[in-house]
Design a protein around this nucleic acid. Structure first.
Lengths: 143, 143
DNA sequence: TCTTAAATATGATAATTATCATATTCTTAT
DNA sequence: ATAAGAATATGATAATTATCATATTTAAGA
């Protein structure tokens, strides 16, 4: 469902949600290691997220990546769409172009309602929500 | 979520569910075209499914692929597992090895119940069920 | 038993995705 | 101003997945 890239991106962003802030910027190598994702790989993803303003960054000495309050208010889904695009999550599981409510593919009735619900949930949950859950020990991030 | 291969396999198997039988074997080229999947590609998948006894086949003149009554009774999930293996559908979305109920990843509570339900549905629905739905115009197969 | 028509086995090529590497640009502090 | 430390831009390589091709084996019918 998700590419490797999205998974890595989510881990990194959630790591930032928990550990960074406008006054606590974190550089690539200090993100890559704890979430164990190859440094060069996650660097590229973070750059893309930054360009799309899903996360924030500053260059140079004392620079790094971080989330602003506004970044934290975003739905998780933003991260997914930013990296994988919207098509992957929304297209028919059998890739039938014409699949829709009126001309459903054989799996549509099974899959479609669940996908809708999943997307709904990923739209509702913000990065901040997940960050709070992690910080209160309701869920766990690394490895 | 699914590979291209699984999608193609599902289309082919459902096509066979609707159109084939022990007395109506269908050869590769007559499957590939209507479900529009490259012939050489679907041939390979059909061979694999046949080897795993998800579908049936006979060689030589008058040969082809088909589903027996027993094949038809199988859950859809069998096709998916046969091609993609079980890991893909069941692993943590973030690929955290340790993710489970006791140490859930941040997306676990969102994703896990839906995945369980999806797998349950794919286990309950047989190829025959879907075939009947297609034949009664409740869902549509090709393109 | 020979010919033909089909699946089967095997492997080659192409496309996509994942991974790695590095020169350039920007920012801060000296 | 300049030096150093960071992200940024760009692109190269590797691995996986998708696609294509073909020689071999099997079954049926003449």
């Amino acid at each position: 469902m998700f590419t490797n890239s999205v998974k890595y991106a989510l881990k990194a962003v959630l790591f930032l949600a928990v550990h960074s802030g406008e006054e606590r910027k974190i550089m690539v190598k200090d993100i890559a290691e704890p979430i164990n994702v190859p440094k060069a790989y996650i660097a590229k993803l973070l750059q893309e997220l930054s360009k799309q303003e899903i996360i924030s960054s500053t260059r140079g000495v004392k620079g790094g990546f971080y989330l602003t309050e506004s970044n934290l208010k975003q739905p998780v889904l933003n991260v997914i769409y930013a990296i994988d695009g919207t098509y992957r999550m929304n297209s028919c599981l059998l890739s039938l172009e014409s699949c829709n409510e009126y001309k459903p593919c054989p799996l549509h009735h099974i899959v479609s309602p669940m996908r809708s619900k999943l997307i709904e949930s990923l739209k509702e949950k913000t990065l901040e929500d997940l960050s709070i859950e992690i910080q209160s020990g309701l869920s766990y991030l690394p490895l």
